[in-house]
Structure formats: C-alpha cells, structure tokens
Amino acid sequence: MSTVETPVASSNEAPPPSPLKRIATYAANQQFILFLVLIGVMIFFDFHNTRFFGTSEFTNLLVDFSEAVLIAAAEMYVITSGGIDLSVGSTIAVSTVVGAYAIQYLEGHHFGEFPSLLVGTFVCAGVGGVVGTINALLITKARLVPFVATLVTLSMGEGLALVFSKGGTVGYDPAAAVWSSTGFWIFRWLTLIVLGITVILGIVLHVSRYGRYNFAIGSNPFAARAAGINVNRHVASVYVLSGVLAGLTGMIWYFNSSGGAPQNGIGNELEAIAAVVIGGVSLVGGVGRFSGIILGVAILTVVHDGLVFINVATTWNEVVVAGFIALAAVLQSLSSGSKRRT
C-alpha cells in the first residue's frame, strides 16, 4: 500500500501554537471582538446612567432578548441550511392575532385562565407551523426560491393579521401580562422558558444528526443528497421549525403586550437576519456558530434598549445598528479572506 504524501500531513507534526499566538487567534475571532464591544457598550450606558447595571433594567433586557431570540434562532437554522425565511416577522403578527382570538374565546367560555393561555400557546405554534408548511411546500414542491416563497408568506401573513384583527389589538388580557411579569431576580418565568428552548436549539444544531444534516445541506446539497440524506424532507422540516418558533414568539408578544396586535413583529425578520449577520453566520449557508446569533441578538437588544435608556432620540437607533452590522461584516470578510478559499 502506498501512502500519499500531502502537505496537510506535515502540519500533523507541527508543534502546538505558542500562548502568544493563541491570544492573537482569539483577538482575531469575530465573536470575541464583538463580545468585547458588547461589554464596552454596556459599560458606556452604565457610565451615563448607573441604573443600567440594575435588576430592573436587566429584567427588561432579558424580556426584549427573549422576544427576539427565537426568530433569530429560526433564521439561523434556515440560513445555515442554505435558505432564507422572510416570513418570520409577519408570522408573529398573524399567530399573535389568531392566538388572541383563541384565548378570548376560551376565557369567554369559562375555560380558566391557565388552560386558556396554554391552549393559546399551542394555537400560536400551530399557526406558525401552518405558515412554515406553506413555505416548505412552495420551496420543495413548487420549487420556488426561498426568498420568493417566503416573500409570498410575508405579505400574506401581514395582510391576514390585519384582516383577522380588523386593524386593532385583539383581546385585552392583563392577567397574561401579570403572569409574564412574575419570576425571580432578573428572570421572569417566560424568559426562562425561552432561554431553555434557545439552549436546546443550540445543542441540536451543533451536536445532533439533525444539525449536522442542516450544515451539510447548506454547504453542498448535492453531496448531502449523494450521501443519502433526504434533502427535501430536511429543508421542509427547517421551514416548519422556523414557522413554529415564529408562532411561539407571537405568543411571547401576546404575553408581553397583553393582547394580539396585528402590527406585532412586522419587519422583525430583518432584525433576525441582522442578528445572524452580526453573529458571523454565512448568508450562503453551511457556516456559523449558534453562540454568534446569541451575541447578535444581545447586541441588538442592548443597543436598542440602551439608547432609549440614556435618553438618546430613538431615531438614532437604526444608525447605530447599521454601524454594528458594518463592523461585523468587515470582521467577517477580513477573517474569511485570511482562511477561506474563494
């Protein structure tokens, strides 16, 4: 048997990198830089108003984080599989409205508060699942490009949310808000549940077979198919998952605003995509770390909330966010230029 001598073989025997070089590698890591920036921004806010590092503000930050993180996670799954989902924002709107009707109906029929909210949660997830299924069918059966397919459901969801709700907030449920404002220390129960789901999503993406297939398909769908992976079935499941997560987010918004407003979530797909970009996830698929989008959502939340907190006119918000996206994109292109092939 002959042995092929390859240049990679030689790096096998290379000595371990020196501590200095290891520090340099960390410093060049996009996520590490962004993490430092996040800490810096938070210190900056606290410098302006020392209430920032207080339990009430951290509670707020975690609530707003939990409103955004599930759709960012959904977008991460979809984008790493090589697609995109523009419909997550309007799915929040349509699911929050339908869920609100369901809860209103059940509570009106003496169903009890807790069971009503629980059923409402399933209704929201179900509505999201239906939107996700439509996306999945448009993409895997009608062979539409994901951008177009989810643009269809984006418009549809937005329109239906208004049609169903007749334009106004559906239901007024202070009980939901009261429950959603209970918890301990900086955590609310709702926040903890969302964080739990988030951790599970991260683990599944990086250590399970499902996550592996997701990256493989995003990296090279032909290789995935040749390896015996049912690519269509997996892609369909990713869009359904994305829809369900957006639906659940609709329920979170219901809790946090004690009603189903048809404007809820409109436009938030771009926020989710921004978090994904800031987190260093490749928009062409196949590459990304879940920790990146956690960081992305954290940065967006802190900037969004912190600017209001220190009484900067909210009109500046988007300008600052744009700066972060630019920073992340530049870091990514620098690092990919140094280590990735063309």
């Binding site: 503000e57 707020n60 404007q263 909330d305 912190g306 209001v308």
Partner: peptide
C-alpha cells in the same frame, strides 16, 4: 426624548419600559 413607536404598541411598551427603568 420621545419614543417613536411606528404605530406598534409593543415597540411603545419596550421604549416606555426603558424610560421607567432609567
């Protein structure tokens, strides 16, 4: 400084919560 809600109740809520915490 005024919170700009763009007609979204949840955006207004989030902004007011910041003002209240700060």
């Amino acid at each position: 400084n005024p919170i700009v809600s763009n007609s979204q109740p949840a955006v207004a809520t989030s902004g007011f919560k910041q003002d209240l915490a700060a």
